[in-house]
């Protein structure tokens, strides 16, 4: 299933990707497709390299093997200027928001517009206010990033990510550490932005229920491999023990509760010498 032919309307296709950090193999020959106009989620426990995958798609990291095609362009074969042109059409929402802390909310959202367009300040103002209105924070435009709550910071970062009207947004753990209300707001925003603006969204998350609620397709990763894929319904009813453990959050299963250790009784009765 790893080597299926890229379908016509996939915006991003990852082919036979391998990537390691030191001796740790993060991806082992995986292939994924992200359909145009859809919300695709990548799930898996922490440490499976979900964020790494986003960085590979954005061209910030280089794979050892395999290719990543975004909108017909091989990300890692592009020249620097071409890569930057491609990135102008991608929005990325970092887990921390990654707002520039020395600028106000307004200037943060205006940042990509000022850097990449020659628009007059009056038009930038209109655009910034429209983007802020879309995330419901037009009234917060004069605040500084340190005055924002985590959920607000993420919404501002989202407004900034859509400032240049991208074709795709990459979300890195958008739901982590959010209270139920901000969570609801973000879930609603991601889905509605995707539909209204005709975006393609890739969400990396380990938040099973909220992600499953808005995703059109889900890949479940573990140990560098794809252990399950399908629509949220298919995933819910997956026969894979691993996927079942992940979706239900069972404490023990194919992923063990205990970190590998020697026998418990032997350990307790041993002399306690460090080794």
């Amino acid at each position: 299933m790893d080597n299926k032919v890229p379908s016509q309307d996939s915006l991003v296709s990852v082919r036979n990707l391998s990537f390691s950090r030191g001796d740790n193999k993060i991806f082992d020959d995986i292939s994924l497709d992200f359909q145009r106009g859809k919300v695709t989620a990548i799930m898996g426990p922490s440490g499976t390299g979900k964020t790494t995958l986003l960085k590979l798609i954005g061209g910030q990291l280089f794979p050892e093997q395999g290719s990543i095609i975004v909108d017909g362009q091989n990300v890692h074969k592009l020249r620097r200027a071409e890569l930057y042109n491609l990135r102008k059409r991608l929005g990325m929402l970092f887990q921390s928001g990654a707002l520039l802390t020395d600028m106000s909310v307004y200037d943060n959202v205006a940042f990509p517009l000022r850097e990449h367009s020659q628009l007059p300040e009056s038009m930038i103002r209109t655009l910034v206010l429209m983007k802020l209105q879309a995330v419901g924070l037009r009234g917060a435009r004069n605040l500084m990033p340190n005055e924002l709550s985590g959920g607000m910071a993420r919404r501002i970062a989202l407004a900034r990510a859509i400032a240049l009207d991208p074709m795709m947004i990459l979300y890195d753990e958008p739901f982590t550490g959010q209270d139920p209300i901000s969570m609801g707001v973000l879930v609603h925003l991601i889905k509605s932005l995707n539909n209204i603006l005709g975006l393609t969204s890739i969400i990396v998350s380990h938040d099973v229920h909220d992600t499953a609620a808005i995703a059109d397709y889900i890949y479940v990763l573990s140990g560098g491999k794809i252990v399950g894929q399908g629509t949220p319904k298919e995933i819910q009813h997956s026969e894979s023990e691993w996927v079942q453990q992940f979706m239900t959050g069972a404490a023990d299963g194919p992923v063990h509760f205990h970190y590998p250790a020697k026998d418990y009784v032997d350990d307790l009765l041993s002399t306690g010498k460090r080794y």
Partner: peptide
């Protein structure tokens, strides 16, 4: 991640 964020904004 501000520097990384900037890179992703093609700056």
């Amino acid at each position: 991640e501000q520097l990384s964020g900037m890179e992703m904004m093609a700056v």
